[in-house]
Structures are given as C-alpha cells and as structure tokens.
C-alpha cells in the first residue's frame, strides 16, 4: 500500500513539474509551445486507436531487436569472457567497433534493408548487441573460479559448465544490461522511425505532429514512455523468476 502511494506521489510530482514547465515555457515565448500533461493525456484518450496501432508497431520492433541482441550478444559475450583464445581474437574487433556511433550507419542500413521495419529493427539490434555483448563478457570474466572448479571436479563437460554456472551467474548482469538497453533502444528506435519515410511506429507519429499538433506529439511521447515502463516491469518480473536466489533472505540459522 505504502509502495503504491509512493508511486502515485511520484507520478503526480512528474505531472506537476511538467505542468509548471509548460506554463513557464508558454509564458516566456508568449505562445503555446509546450502542451501541458492534461492536454497530452486527453489526446492519448482521443487518439487511442491510432496510438495503439503505432505503439504495437514500435513495441514489436523493440522487443524483436532486444531478442536478436540477446541471442547474438549473450553467447558471444559469455564465450569471449571464458575462452582466452577467442577473447584475444575478438577483443580488438570489439574495442574498435564498439565506440563507432551506430547511428552513423543508418543510411547504410536503409540501403541494405530498405525503408521498412528491417532497418529499424537492425539499427536498434546493432546498438543493443554491443551493450549486451560487453556486459555478458564482463560478467563471465568475473565468475568466481570456485564455482567452475566445483562443477569441473564433478566431471562437468564444457557445455554443462556454461549451462549450470556461467549462464546463471551472468544472468543478473545480462538483465541489468537489458534494462539499460530498453532506454537506449527506445532512443534509437525513435531515430530510426523518424528517419524512415512515413509509416507505422511512435517515432514517425511524434515527428509528424511535432510542428503543428504538439499535444498529439506529446501523446506519442507518453506512449513511448509507457512502452519503456512496461518493458522495465517485464524485465523486473523476469528477474524475480529467473534469479529468485537473489531475492531470498537468510531465514535459517
């Protein structure tokens, strides 16, 4: 109950700050530049069907990009973290390519994948791939050796060591990187969707209305924020199921 009240108070504080900012910006410019939260929320209700259509388009692109980044970044990160020869070979490649701003490749991706969803998913997946790869690699490197010795002494094969030790030990760090990836992914998805010609997706929707129907554009921003919130909560829930051992307390003595 107390927790719910804290959440409600936090959202009220955000709406209050937004309303104050709106009043201030509009007064300084003597023009309705920044819509207040209630105008934006009323546009969410008014355009619910259209927003839902764009929301779902953005959501599946983001989820697909996260899944692609996980499917590629986790195995590669864990193996580079644990296999010194592979690490020596791949580390220079990672260090050279990781700092490249992937957004610089967006036009190249349009050329390769066209202006459809492929480019948007590829753009976000590329950004998140590095995020997840680097986290998984670091987590795998830092696993206490005693855990590995413990299963090796029981005759574990290499595959069994990955399955029973390296993956579960790295999972909390991987999920943290997924949380970071959600925010990063939404930012890059917005860029990719606004760069693609007109089409579905909240990025395009926000861009389309930003000049002349700013309250509708802000309704789109609220929808993007909601997308992030839902995914954060989903990752939190997933962590509570997959990493239950992190949440237990010392009951027995």
């Amino acid at each position: 109950m107390k927790r719910t009240l804290t959440y409600v108070a936090s959202i009220c504080a955000l709406l209050f700050i937004w309303e104050m900012a709106s009043i201030a910006v509009n007064a300084i410019n003597n023009a309705p530049l920044l819509p207040g939260p209630f105008n934006a929320l009323s546009q969410v209700v008014k355009n619910a069907a259209e927003l839902q259509h764009h929301f779902l388009a953005s959501a599946w692109r983001l989820i697909l990009a996260i899944l692609i980044a996980l499917a590629t970044g986790v195995p590669l990160g864990l193996t580079t973290g644990r296999e010194p020869t592979l690490d020596r070979f791949l580390s220079p490649i990672i260090y050279i390519t990781y700092p490249i701003p992937q957004v610089a490749l967006i036009l190249f991706l349009f050329v390769v994948f066209g202006t459809g969803s492929g480019t948007k998913v590829a753009m976000v997946a590329l950004v998140l791939f590095f995020q997840i790869l680097v986290s998984a690699r670091g987590a795998a490197k830092n696993i206490p050796e005693e855990h590995i010795i413990s299963v090796r002494s029981a005759g574990a094969s290499r595959w069994q060591i990955y399955w029973h030790v390296i993956l579960p030990a790295s999972l909390p760090d991987i999920l943290t990187s997924v949380r970071v990836s959600i925010g990063l992914g939404i930012a890059f998805l917005y860029i990719a969707e606004t760069n693609a010609a007109l089409g579905t997706g909240l990025g395009g929707y926000i861009n389309k209305h930003m000049l002349f129907q700013r309250d509708r554009a802000f309704a789109g921003i609220i929808a993007l924020a909601l997308l992030g919130l839902i995914l954060y909560l989903a990752v939190d829930g997933l962590e509570r199921i997959l990493c239950r051992w992190k949440y237990v307390s010392r009951r027995a003595r």
């Binding site: 855990h147 299963v151 002494s153 029981a154 029973h164």
Partner: peptide, 26 residues
C-alpha cells in the same frame, strides 16, 4: 568427490539442486 573451502555451492541452485548436481552432471 571433492569438497571445497566454502562448500562449493552454486548460489542459484537450491539445496536439493546443489546436492543432486554431481548426479545430474553424470
């Protein structure tokens, strides 16, 4: 069988899973 300094338990496995680990691996 080898018993390590801190018992070598895996924190993400329950007592039952830890105790059965050698049998599971074999």
């Amino acid at each position: 069988a080898l018993i390590l300094q801190n018992a070598g338990l895996l924190p993400w496995k329950t007592v039952w899973q830890n105790a059965n680990l050698s049998l599971l691996l074999s």
